[in-house]
Write a protein that binds this DNA or RNA. Structure first.
Lengths: 173, 173
DNA sequence: TATTGTTATACTCTATAACTATA
DNA sequence: TATAGTTATAGAGTATAACAATA
């Protein structure tokens, strides 16, 4: 059974009659009810992620680095001598999409590609000196502005618990 | 100071010499080190969110609903008589992008638009009977398969704590 | 034959400007 | 003049197929 045209019209009329109470024409925008939405973990996860990325972008704006670019630089620092496929896979980036991303970083002289000597198909990746310097500055901004704010909001213990649960979901779910 | 061509070549050679130890040509793919990445809240947040959405999609696949569509139906159920702008704003969807989304739901007879009687610019939104039925089935799938799995992984207390922190970040960060 | 980096391509999300009809 | 819904459009992000060089 589907809703009838008449029922639709009635509902539309109802919204009119219920309306004018607060004082003739007072932009009366009562907040909506989230209902079960506020119990949906995925929903809060997404909204929180957007907020955190937005703040990251803002905090690290002077260096013009996105979260994805920052993650690449971090990974290159800790894993010198790896090729594109290895870095991309670790970050969940598809190899074709990683090409343009690297082009961007390399054109800014933050990292470099070098043909591997033992497998000439591979491009060994490494940070440049400028890449290391920018990464160092980025880490400081992230720690002192971004993560510090999160710590302030949640408290160190809660922040650690949150990170632990998120990591668990990312790994085991 | 930038890294020299020679340094780059040296690093490439180094990766060769360090290489063959485990047993001549044994796809030796030692796992990469995440380093500071595992302490970056935003990184875990993103990876966890992707996992959760993927599972949601899978659990609710029989009904062909995305997380975003599910959130719209939930909101319509709890807030009948609201217009497109109000629903879209609440979900953080831009009005122009909400049009195609509604077209999809309406073409499947899950919800309906009706011109408001007091403001003929507005489209009052409401669930159809079919929309209510599909939403009811979706809720059951989400609760019994999706959220149940998360509860199993984290435990009820941790799950509640996680939700509380995510909500706090989404609201106050 | 298989793999690495790459190109081309397509599809989804997100974002902004501007139009129309109403107010 | 301002607002609701809409269109057009552009840019990210993500996905797959296929090609050249190399193994």
């Amino acid at each position: 059974m589907t809703v009838s045209k008449a029922a639709v019209v009635d509902a539309a009329k109802a919204s009119r009659t219920v309306r004018k109470e607060p004082a003739e024409e007072a932009t009366e925008t009562s907040p909506l009810h989230l209902g079960e939405l506020s119990e949906l973990l995925g929903y809060s996860l997404k909204r929180a992620q957007l907020k955190v990325f937005e703040d990251f972008l803002h905090c690290v704006a002077p260096l013009q680095l996105t979260p994805a670019q920052f993650s690449v630089l971090l990974l290159l620092e800790k894993n010198p001598g790896r090729n594109q496929t290895e870095i991309a896979n670790t970050l969940g980036i598809l190899r074709p999409n990683f090409v343009a991303m690297l082009d961007g970083l390399e054109s800014r002289d933050l990292c470099a590609r070098a043909r591997s000597a033992n497998d000439r198909r591979s491009h060994i990746l490494m940070l440049t000196d400028k890449g290391r310097a920018v990464l160092a500055r980025a880490k400081k901004l992230v720690a002192s502005k971004h993560e510090a704010r999160l710590n302030e909001l949640l408290g160190p213990a809660n922040r650690a618990a949150l990170l632990s649960m998120l990591t668990k979901i990312a790994r085991e779910f």
